[in-house]
C-alpha cells in the first residue's frame, strides 16, 4: 500500500509543507502556553468588566472634563476651560478646602480611634468581643438611617445637648452653626468608620507574634515602650492600609453631609462630591462636574502615592 511507505515528514515525500488549520494550531501549542491562554480567557470577563464599568467611565470622565456638555446637546470641546474656571471659582475653593479638612481630620481620627479601640479589645478586657460586635454594628446600619438618627441626636435641644446640660450647655446648634457643623459631620463619620478599621487593626495586632513582646518584657520594656518599639513598627503596613482606605472613603463621602446638613449652613459642610452632583445633575454642567471629579481623583492619587512612598521609606528604615 502506498500510504504505508510514507514518512512523517511531508517534504521528504515530496509534498510541500502546509500550514495546519488555525483550530489545530491552538491545540498543538505547548502546554505551558495553553495554560497561559486559558488563564487569560478566565481573567478576560473580569478585565472586560473593569474596562467597561470602571476604566472606561474614568477615561470618559477625563474626556468629558474637556468639553461643555449639558446632557441634552452634543458635547463641545473647550480644552482646559473648565479647569481654568474652577481655579477662579470661590465656591470650588471653599468646597475643596472643606473636603481637604474633612478628609484630613476624619482620617487621622479614624486611624487613632480605630487603633485605640483595637488595642483596648486586644488587652482582653471582659466582654471585649461583645463590645466589638456592638461597635461594628454601626457599619451595618443603612446610611439613611444613620443620617436620620444623627439628625435627631444633633438637634439643638437633642439628646447630646441634654447630656451636656450638667456642664452648662442649654442649646448647641450642632449642624446649623458654621463653626460646629463640620466637626459634627466629622464626628458622625468617625463614629461610623472607626469600628470597621478597629477590626482591621485587631487582625494586625493578632498577627504579631507574642515572642516579640516576651523578649521586650524580659529586656525590661514597659507597656508604652513595647507599643512604641514593637507594636507600632509591626503594624505599619496595616496603618498604611487604614490611612489610605479611610482617606479614599472620606473623599467619596456624599450622603452624610447631604442628608444631615445639605452642605450648609452656607457652604460650611459642602464637599466636592456634593458639588459634583449639583453641578452635573442640577446645573446640567456635566463637563465642569467631570473636571471637578478629575481634580478630586488627582488629589487622592497624589495623596495615595505620597502615603505609599512615606510608608515604604519607613519600612526600609525599620528593616
Amino acid at each position: 500500500m502506498p500510504s504505508s511507505s510514507c514518512t512523517t515528514d511531508p517534504e521528504a515525500n515530496g509534498v510541500p509543507a502546509q500550514t495546519p488549520p488555525a483550530t489545530r494550531r491552538f491545540w498543538h501549542i505547548g502546554f505551558r502556553r495553553r495554560i497561559q491562554l486559558w488563564g487569560v480567557a478566565f481573567v478576560l470577563p473580569a478585565l472586560l468588566f473593569f474596562a467597561v464599568f470602571k476604566y472606561g467611565p474614568m477615561l470618559w470622565a477625563i474626556g468629558l472634563s474637556l468639553t461643555s456638555y449639558d446632557m441634552v446637546s452634543q458635547p463641545s470641546f473647550v480644552g482646559l476651560e473648565n479647569y481654568q474656571s474652577l481655579a477662579s471659582d470661590p465656591i470650588f475653593q471653599v468646597t475643596l478646602l472643606n473636603t481637604l479638612v474633612y478628609i484630613g481630620v476624619s482620617t487621622v481620627l479614624i486611624t487613632l480611634i480605630g487603633l485605640a479601640l483595637a488595642l483596648a479589645i486586644n488587652t482582653g478586657v471582659p466582654y471585649a468581643r461583645h463590645c466589638m460586635t456592638a461597635m461594628f454594628l454601626t457599619n451595618l446600619m443603612p446610611v439613611i438611617a444613620v443620617c436620620l438618627v444623627w439628625k435627631f441626636l444633633l438637634h439643638p435641644f437633642g439628646p447630646i445637648t441634654q447630656l451636656l446640660a450638667p456642664f452648662g450647655a442649654a442649646r448647641i446648634d450642632w449642624v446649623t452653626n458654621s463653626a460646629t457643623a463640620m466637626p459634627s459631620i466629622i464626628a458622625v463619620t468617625v463614629w461610623r468608620f472607626a469600628p470597621y478599621f478597629m477590626v482591621v487593626f485587631l487582625a494586625g495586632l493578632l498577627a504579631i507574634p507574642d515572642d516579640y513582646y516576651e523578649a521586650a518584657q524580659l529586656d525590661g520594656a514597659n507597656a508604652v515602650r513595647r507599643f512604641w518599639h514593637v507594636t507600632l513598627p509591626l503594624l505599619t503596613p496595616v496603618i498604611f492600609f487604614v490611612v489610605v482606605v479611610s482617606a479614599l472613603l472620606c473623599a467619596r463621602i456624599f450622603l452624610l453631609p447631604y442628608f444631615i446638613t445639605g452642605g450648609g449652613p452656607g457652604s460650611a459642610t459642602r464637599v466636592l462630591s456634593m458639588l459634583i452632583y449639583d453641578t452635573g445633575f442640577s446645573y446640567l454642567k456635566m463637563g465642569r462636574a467631570a473636571a471637578i471629579s478629575v481634580v478630586l481623583f488627582a488629589i487622592m492619587m497624589v495623596f495615595t502615592v505620597l502615603q505609599m512612598r512615606l510608608f515604604m521609606r519607613n519600612e526600609r528604615m525599620l528593616a
Binding site: 446648634d173 446649623t176 452653626n177 458654621s178 450648609g264 449652613p265 452656607g266 457652604s267
Partner: peptide, 11 residues
C-alpha cells in the same frame, strides 16, 4: 439664595 439666607438667619 438658600446659602445666603442660611448664613444670615442661622449665623
Amino acid at each position: 439664595m438658600h446659602r445666603a439666607v442660611q448664613k444670615i438667619v442661622l449665623n
